[in-house]
Design a protein around this nucleic acid. Structure first.
Lengths: 155, 155
DNA sequence: TCGGACTGGGTGATGCGTCAACATCACGAT
DNA sequence: ATCGTGATGTTGACGCATCACCCAGTCCGA
């Protein structure tokens, strides 16, 4: 049992800045989506792959792979979205276990209304605030950290 | 109505890496805290300022300033933590509206059990993965983005 | 001093996120 | 053919996060 290596001042500063950034960035995006299109971030995440799919239809399984959520979370989310008329569920012809999710007209209208403002917000609060060098560093760092989490089985 | 400036490939790659990192990092920390001390991230956030306060007692107001949450969120959280015996609520002598939160022995034991592993996890998946230059860039970028959110009233 | 505004805190409702448990179906080995 | 195993999807429960709203106490100026 060795003594923990506590964070020094500059390390703690970085860590706190990260925590605050994550929280406030998420809040800013959620608010913008809610305000401009009545969507949550989770709604948006589901609508994007659906809007890019042929005929706006995907199996739950494929949709789950696209958003990289577990089945439970996706099922709950789709149920809520179905209740609000953003998507519709249908049976799957090829596999009796399966379930298809179809983007409704209202769902397509919502994502199309939300997307331009959303990307503008991503630029305003993130991308456009960074220099080219900084973007390169951040991409490198983020992907490395993701790999670390992945190879460590921490996900 | 001008055309939205969609993200190009490298910009989208950075944005996706950020989203995945945030999600997986949060999951890794929550799991570690839950596993090693039976605490959630929200529990930990509340316990830290309490453990640093004189006598382990803070007014709700001060506690709220420390964690920077709104009153409702803090009230819900403290209620759940009180039910589990991590904190106790007392009346405030100076202000009849006030409410004091006291760290219990169980609460102190929990935070002391959790902290070393928590900081090790922060190092393992974040701080220790970065070079000195990268830490400097990230601190600078994160603080700039936070300022941008702040000055824009986006919080 | 009194009346209105503000502050401190709590509650209920609702959506998000996770875990455990369950039911159904597919599929390969025997 | 059937049995076991894994894949697919759903549900219930519970904690986190936010919003709208409420109540009580404090404060300050007319």
């Amino acid at each position: 049992m060795t003594a923990p290596r506590w964070l020094d001042e500059s390390e703690a500063r970085l860590w706190r800045a990260y925590l605050v950034l994550v929280r406030d960035l998420r809040r800013a995006f959620d608010r913008q989506l809610e305000r401009d299109a009545g969507l949550s971030g989770a709604d948006y995440a589901v609508l994007v792959p659906l809007s890019e799919a042929a005929d706006g239809v995907l199996r739950m399984r494929e949709l789950g792979r696209s958003v990289d959520w577990d089945r439970s979370r996706l099922s709950h989310q789709v149920r809520r979205m179905e209740k609000r008329g953003l998507v519709a569920r249908e049976d799957c012809a090829e596999d009796a276990r399966g379930s298809m999710v179809r983007l409704t007209d209202a769902g397509r209208a919502a994502i199309e209304a939300a997307a331009p403002e959303h990307v503008e917000t991503v630029r305003r609060y993130f991308i456009d605030q960074l220099s080219e060098d900084e973007r390169a560093v951040l991409t490198d760092v983020f992907e490395r950290l993701n790999q670390r989490l992945d190879s460590d089985g921490a996900v």
